[in-house]
Design a protein around this nucleic acid. Structure first.
Lengths: 181, 181
DNA sequence: ATTTATTGCAACATAGATGTTGCAGTTGAC
DNA sequence: GTCAACTGCAACATCTATGTTGCAATAAAT
């Protein structure tokens, strides 16, 4: 593959992710136009619409996996790992805003990868519980859901907040809440 | 309008909301089939796809408005109003799971209503700040986003939790966080 | 019992999205 | 400079969703 081809492919994926996040029924034609390439070029690169979606999901999963690896969720101290995870995953969520939980239903391979990544994070949350970083009465699944929700919120509703500060806000809201108590 | 007609209309709206939430590109045919009526019946009731979406949005906005009214956000004490709002809005979010922020872009009237309701809630959050229920260093917009995220999370990822308990969980996570601090 | 509203069904028309192919032009690699 | 890869463009076929209409059947309201 030549350099310009790789550039176009990446551009299509990123543009596609952005448009599909706003409107999952965005047409291939619209994605191609937004990416500045011809519709047929996209069809030559991706056998069909599903293949394009798969490629977007894979790109997101690759990025997320790197973040999970580098956060050292099982080895590093909980607060350190949490912050490192957040600082990494927020840009990923912004760059690939597609909702994986909804849109990967028809892609068993991607779903399996997603499940695996999800399990790693759940394990980390469980460790946080066990090591006393979360209140004893907190359900781990709820904690997990709250963390996800906070990440999505800061990533997409506050795109201007830079990753380090965003990670601070999320970790703070997660552990301390927003109240004065 | 006859009784059976009203029943069908309501069924189409609820079924439509459910399917559209899972997949915003769900076809009218699929909605009609799931609602147990013929495709043409849906078309007779709603001039076009947009009209159906508008009706769904309106139904959601009606329900949400009732909740906002009954929560007495400006009169009742902050903790009371918060809990009443949560207990009311969580079932609404479950019954009408459509994502209003995304899907109402092309419906200016619905958007305006949504903005108005959003403003009411933001005003309430601001009051919570002013009256010292939130930490002084918390940005009101962030608090608002966190509350929304928690509501969505408990409403859709934990559909089995009943509204009173769900409201407790959200209020607790919102004000106190999940950490031991 | 008659009227009226509503429905399901079949058939049709239209528009838009998807996917394919051939061809000519361009650009990077060698 | 030649070659191979890649692109845009036009044209085509196909499929699906949308929306419409006519008609017969049904069930509520009077």
């Amino acid at each position: 593959m030549r350099a310009d081809a790789a550039r176009n492919l990446s551009s299509v994926l990123r543009t596609g992710a952005r448009l599909l996040a706003e409107d999952p029924s965005t047409s291939m034609a619209a994605i191609a136009a937004a990416a500045g390439v011809d519709r047929t070029t996209v069809h030559r690169r991706f056998a069909n619409r599903e293949a394009l979606l798969r490629a977007v999901f894979q790109a997101k999963l690759d990025s997320a996996e790197r973040v999970l690896d580098e956060a050292r969720l099982t080895e590093a101290p909980v607060p350190v790992a949490l912050h490192r995870y957040l600082e990494g995953i927020i840009p990923v969520s912004r760059e690939w805003p597609v909702d994986t939980r909804r849109m990967m239903q028809k892609d068993p391979e991607a779903s399996a990868r997603r499940e695996a990544q999800s399990a790693r994070l759940s394990t980390f949350i469980q460790r946080a519980c066990d090591e006393g970083y979360l209140r004893a009465d907190i359900d781990a699944a709820w904690a997990r859901a709250v963390l996800d929700a906070l990440v999505d919120s800061i990533a997409h509703r506050f795109p201007a907040v830079d990753p380090p500060q965003a990670a601070d806000l999320v970790a703070d809201a997660f552990l301390r809440g927003l109240g004065v108590t």
